[in-house]
């Protein structure tokens, strides 16, 4: 049995767990804990180690999706999770500009761990206060060559599109090498 993995990363409460939940064939193995810090209490629980989802491709190939913990103090997990990944998805909450700076930092950190292909998912595009994908691209200073996709992490079709675009990027990069 062959296994490959992709990593789903992004700031706290960006929608990483929902993203994996939307596509995983198993209930996401989540390591969520109640939030102790008042400052981060925009939701009741948060991922502290990793989320873990699975997509079985066929009898001898399985794709694992790993979601990183969003809170800064658990960032020691990031390097461990990024090892050997096929590519990664950076999820950004389009409606919370206060997290854009952190998203930029996470993106740079993951690029440093492994220069593998990646895409950026502009999550929560169904909300009225969401920034457009083009505005987000400028805010995050993303190069035109990097794929940035509108996304609603709770919607399976939307998540499929993001993962497919990442796989297309991986394929393109293989051809270029």
């Amino acid at each position: 049995m062959q296994t490959v993995k992709m990593v789903v990363t992004g700031p706290f409460n960006a929608g990483k767990t929902a993203f994996i939940q939307a596509i995983s064939e198993i209930d996401v193995v989540s390591t969520e804990r109640k939030i102790s810090s008042e400052a981060e209490r925009v939701k009741e629980t948060t991922t502290v180690a990793m989320d873990f989802g699975r997509i079985t491709v066929d009898d001898d190939l399985v794709l694992y999706l790993f979601g990183t913990p969003g809170q800064k103090r658990f960032d020691f997990m990031w390097e461990i999770l990024s090892e050997g990944m096929l590519g990664f998805v950076v999820i950004v909450d389009s409606a919370r500009p206060e997290t854009f700076r952190e998203a930029k930092g996470i993106l740079q950190t993951f690029r440093a761990y492994a220069p593998t292909p990646y895409v950026v998912a502009a999550n929560k595009q169904d909300r009225d206060d969401a920034w457009t994908v083009e505005d987000l691209r400028i805010a995050l200073k993303l190069d035109r060559k990097i794929k940035m996709l509108p996304c609603v992490a709770s919607d399976r079709e939307s998540v499929k599109k993001v993962l497919l675009e990442l796989l297309y990027s991986i394929l393109e990069e293989m051809k270029e090498k």
């Binding site: 062959q2 490959v4 990024s82 050997g84 761990y113 492994a114 796989l167 394929l171 293989m174 090498k177």
Partner: peptide
């Protein structure tokens, strides 16, 4: 980063295509 499990380029592409078809 460590490369995909199969080192052969064609095998790698085949693996990614299988993932694409599945998703």
């Amino acid at each position: 980063a460590r490369q995909l499990p199969p080192v052969n380029k064609e095998q790698q592409a085949s693996l990614v295509n299988r993932l694409i078809n599945r998703i």
